[in-house]
Design a protein around this nucleic acid. Structure first.
Ligand SMILES: [Mn+2]
Ligand SMILES: [Mn+2]
Ligand SMILES: [Mn+2]
Ligand SMILES: [Mn+2]
Lengths: 139, 139
DNA sequence: GGGTGATTGTAGCCATGGCTACGGATTAAA
DNA sequence: TTTAATCCGTAGCCATGGCTACAATCACCC
């Protein structure tokens, strides 16, 4: 919002992609911890359909970003900052998903499309999504 | 659709990103040719707010993909395949943009969000966008 | 204690898309 | 015809996110 960057359309798209991995990973970690109690590298590899090597390197970057804590051969834990980001990401994710459902998109397709769309929805657009879903659901 | 790939949400998102550059570039080339008669590397660099080096390398890949033709120091031209992709991309882009407008998103924000969202909208979702816009505009 | 399978780490490769620095080509003016 | 500006190419750097191959660690059972 501050930098003139984000007012050039493609710049904003690129900047969205830069934060995308962090958002998806902390969200996934929070979900997996919720389900299984702990989250291991393998769980993330399965979730994202990539190898454990890819996950390890991304997790290392999340550590350097202060979103995640790890010890060798131990499960992955979120920091407080990580939990906050996860919460915000999940919130936005849910709004987008429910919006697509309210629009009449089949659940499976909605789940898939949401995973990409969520990162490109500005606060303003998100608000319109919310409003629409609220009205459509009011019946 | 064919591969089991695209049914894993994040795999589809990644595959969307793989085609994203090609789509945006051929679309931009078509637009710039429309406006100025020809499209040079510099025009694309301005459009995407990157250096001419980045553009050159991406254009080289588009050539190898059969979407674009170039000669040294000459303007960039679309092949027939490039024009077709540009047309499809623009069509989808327009539907997403008009949909956001119909939803009540301000034009500037809609333009920015569209640039990212368009690549993650499945045919099914696109159809719902179209339907919504048609009804909202019918008043 | 030893063996085995699952998990994690590490080395090293590739493609993509950013960049700076610099040099060659084209074009238009002087 | 020289000069200057603009445009383009090339070399070489970086970060990210994929991968395979292999080594180390851990957990658990025998
Ligand atoms: Mn998500
Ligand atoms: Mn996502
Ligand atoms: Mn785009
Ligand atoms: Mn995207």
């Amino acid at each position: 919002m501050s930098s003139p960057n984000v007012s050039v359309p493609h710049r904003r798209t690129r900047s969205d992609h830069a934060s995308e991995t962090a958002e998806d990973y902390v969200e996934a970690i929070a979900e997996i911890v919720e389900e299984r109690g702990t989250c291991r590298v393998v769980d993330l590899a399965t979730r994202f359909a990539v190898t454990h090597v890819t996950v390890s390197r991304i997790v290392a970057r999340l550590v350097s970003l202060g979103l995640v804590e790890t010890e060798p051969y131990q499960p992955v834990r979120l920091t407080e900052a990580g939990r906050k980001l996860a919460k915000r990401s999940k919130h936005r994710h849910d709004i987008v998903y429910k919006f697509l459902l309210a629009l009449g998109v089949p659940a499976k397709t909605a789940a898939i499309d949401t995973e990409g769309i969520e990162h490109h929805v500005s606060p303003e657009t998100l608000k319109r999504f919310e409003d629409f879903t609220a009205r459509a659901t009011a019946d």
